[in-house]
Design a protein around this nucleic acid. Structure first.
Lengths: 128, 128
DNA sequence: CATTACGTTGACGTAAACGTCAACTTGGTT
DNA sequence: AACCAAGTTGACGTTTACGTCAACGTAATG
């Protein structure tokens, strides 16, 4: 299928799939979030790059800065092999988790309040 | 207690409580998110303003723009009393809910992936 | 009454995340 | 050869969300 390990994407390919601009993708690279292979001048994106991009956009939807997403992405790289690095990684994981749990909490409250409000509005509509 | 309906806050009061700057609070007002009473020049914030500010900051944590939070805030105002307005409100509610559910989904995936990664890192640490 | 604390309104500065040209190159297609 | 589509690298512009002075008002305090 299209998810096989050797699939390669062009920049406009990725842009279409994720509904973003090529400019954005190049910008992410300039910020150290992506580093695609090259074929002459042209960028070639691997399945790993695809996954990384997915991570970036998920981060964006959650209100993360690119710098934060970059940290998370680097966290997943196995290059950092000494203990200090690993422990820094674990700290980052904990931080991320706390932040996510705060967001989860915020969302639950929001959904509850929206429910209440929706009910009130519908009631108002019925009594018109 | 301090949650009684008549409690009034100064601007630096709110700034301290929410750990933001007075500049930010004034900015939110200039963007139409807050509209405190005045006593001469000075701004006086009611319990309603306090709640609105809480909503703004919750929106921020979830990555919303101030413009989006403003819409949500206006949604809660009972001033819009005709049917067209109400239906627009219901649309906004649905939109917000969809967005929140997408975020919820994103967060669940993130937490799962972090769990997996944490496990792998801890394993690596133990085998050092 | 002079100082200090707290507030006010401009006005300009800034970081992040791209958008938008402009001016090329390059690999096929007619 | 001529051309088009898709790609490239600058470089400058733009929006959002404030930060950071400056210059001033006002109220209470020593």
């Amino acid at each position: 299928m299209s998810k096989d390990k050797s699939t390669i994407y062009s920049i406009s390919d990725l842009a279409q799939r994720f509904d973003i601009t090529t400019r954005a993708i190049r910008f992410y690279e300039s910020e150290g979030l992506l580093s695609p292979k090259r074929e002459g001048q042209k960028r070639l994106y691997s399945q790993k790059d695809y996954t990384t991009l997915k991570l970036i956009l998920r981060g964006k939807r959650l209100g993360w800065s690119l710098a934060e997403s970059r940290e998370l992405i680097q966290m997943y790289k196995p290059e950092q092999n000494n203990q200090a690095q690993y422990e820094k990684v674990l700290e980052k994981v904990a931080e991320s988790r706390d932040r996510l749990q705060q967001q989860l909490h915020d969302i639950q409250i929001m959904l509850m309040e929206l429910d209440e409000h929706e009910a009130r509005v519908k009631e108002a509509l019925e009594t018109i």
